[in-house]
Design a protein around this nucleic acid. Structure first.
Lengths: 212, 212, 212, 212
DNA sequence: ATGTAAGCGAGACGGTACGTCCTGTCTTGTC
DNA sequence: GACAAGACAGGACGTACCGTCTCGCTTACAT
């Protein structure tokens, strides 16, 4: 798996070597508390004060690290996406199906369910947040598509693409189709992403890919 | 087009014939004000008080008709989806492409951009709101898929499906793939849904459909 | 006693006859709560939130009526000064002595002790507050000096003063000497204003007045 | 003049001879910064952090020397009272008048204006602070009264008092009358202590003293 | 000369209160 | 009984200070 480098989780930190250093334990406690609060109360009823209390931390400690609720939640949820790993079941269809199921499982966790759409909504008016989502969540998933394609090509299940610009466009398209369909099914249509649906979706996708 | 019957937009209304009747003009002014506020301030900064002021209406008048911000916004945005009509360009690929572009255009309007994901997020914890979204927005779009398939079958571009259960599942799948991909591209990846993307997506989709 | 007309205790009130009127009961509850909080916690630990809670009122209700802690406390304490009435013991020395003791008793109540100097201190940087203190507290006491002098003149204990400008200056001087000495003894020197002290002070004052 | 011995301004200092000694320059810088902050922002908006910054010192350095804002300000202001010296104009009335004007000038400096009443108010709930004020400010002024009386007696302007207890009570009374009247005129009535007022006050006071 | 103990600037920390904003309800008088 | 106006209780916001606590230096005396 491609090593994901978090260059700096809190780019606003002063980084001068003077003064008392920020508590790493506070960081952890806050993110844990955020996920717990998300599960119990949902995005719209999650408050900074409540997170602080749960984490045993002052509100200022939160605001020193994150500018608001959205940024905090993106980081808290992003950590969950780190667990998404590409399966290796030996064939492309099996891998895609499994990936779809894993993604759906992640989306159906209450932490993610409530908050993912909410931060995306918030991001439509906030460039910085959009960037944060992109680097913390979207790019991470897009990697998986690239990785999966490379593996399928190595296996001979997919042809190598000469034109790199076109290859990139295709990867983006496939990513939006997979992530979009799963997210829409799970969160908008609010119907289960079960193995049967995953199989039918995979069939549609893979024969569609052949035509690109 | 299938006539969509709004049986009763405000089911809580008393409907007794006594007392002063509710002002229809207020309804219109409120929904207009809601959309205007959405454009100017976005979902998260839209407040009931502000909408009331813009509409020249008292807050009580809002709460008499809607139970909260989410419900109000769903109705305000749903009206925009009424304008979505199935194109008839003579061939299935052309129709799908055009439909994708129309949907994208709708999603890129600021009223929709900010609020659609937000109400979906809200709905994950609110059964009643989920129903309202389904009937006001989702079902309306799903109709278009059914309508489009029927027309394509009439033209001989798609085979008739015997098994009605399977046909319904397929329509749902196709709906999630189209709506999901477009929404994801437009709102999550935040990249433009232009004619080139629409063409490539349509090619992928239609050859995928062949395999179902 | 001269009837003191509170023309309008909250000059910031909109006074339009529309909308729900302000609760008179809230006013009373707030001022009572303020005095109670002053007794229990003292000026510097009195918080608006605490007063609101004690009064069973929202913080906004306080801020709708008073701009801050100082204004609120001035009004709460001013009410206590309304009880100060000129004694009538038949002779000027007896009346002055009694007045001194009554003033001291008022200053030694915990509500007044902590807050009077504090609001005076605050007022040194706040013209509006200074005016509020003057009209709510200082002028009320100054009236008593004028009244007392008039009565002593009627009794023949003091001569009538021809020059009204000089008479006004004298009243001001006497007021500052009485109020100043009592306040200083009670709050700065922090020693008791007992009958013996009052008698010695009165003797000093009255023979001093003779020389004016 | 009576030498005033500041036995130890910071009695909490450990005084062990080991370790780095406290910076005397920091002490000076802090007191200067305190007075400057008092002038610019007034008592209630003066903050420990701001004083530290102005003095180019860490907050801990302040807290190592003073337990809080009130103590710090008392010390900062007390230094100003050291400059109050008894005038010697040859006659008691002239000396009293001049003394009154000097005291008023001190009270009208912005450092003193805001803070003196504030610390007195604070002291009503704080025994230790009361002691600090007494020894740093009140006793210093009371000395002047004693000194002035002694000088007047030496000049033959006042009789010697046999009864020492009564003499002490009289000095206290006179002190409260002078300081009280001037403070009240300057800070509560907020009117100028000009030479005319000083003359009339002195006349009242001195003929009153004759009756004791 | 070196060790050791306190002082020091910096700044993060757990708290408390602030004054503002919004929510959803209520109480007026008017239509 | 709907309506405009606006007061109300409640609760979260993000900020400002408080007084304490690490940090990694510096300073000066006692060995």
């Amino acid at each position: 798996m491609v090593a994901v480098m978090h260059s700096d989780p809190h780019p606003g930190a002063p980084n001068g070597r003077t003064g008392r250093p920020r508590s790493a334990e506070a960081d952890r406690a806050i993110l844990d508390a955020t996920r717990a609060a998300l599960v119990e109360r949902g995005w719209s009823k999650l408050t900074m004060g409540d997170v602080a209390t749960r984490a045993g931390v002052a509100k200022t400690t939160l605001y020193r690290r994150w500018t608001g609720k959205s940024e905090l939640v993106v980081d808290a949820v992003a950590a969950l996406f780190d667990e998404l790993a590409l399966p290796d079941l030996g064939s492309l269809p099996a891998d895609v199906e499994e990936m779809v199921l894993r993604l759906a499982a992640l989306l159906e966790r209450p932490e993610t369910r409530t908050s993912l759409m909410a931060v995306v909504a918030e991001a439509t008016r906030d460039e910085a947040l959009r960037g944060r989502i992109r680097s913390a969540i979207v790019d991470r998933q897009k990697c998986l598509v690239l990785e999966g394609r490379a593996r399928a090509q190595a296996r001979g299940e997919l042809p190598y693409e000469e034109d790199t610009a076109s290859a990139a466009r295709n990867a983006d398209l496939i990513f939006d189709v997979i992530a979009g369909a799963v997210v829409h099914r799970a969160l908008v249509s609010a119907e289960p992403v079960d193995p049967a649906w995953a199989r039918r979706f995979t069939r549609l996708l893979l024969s569609g890919i052949g035509s690109l």
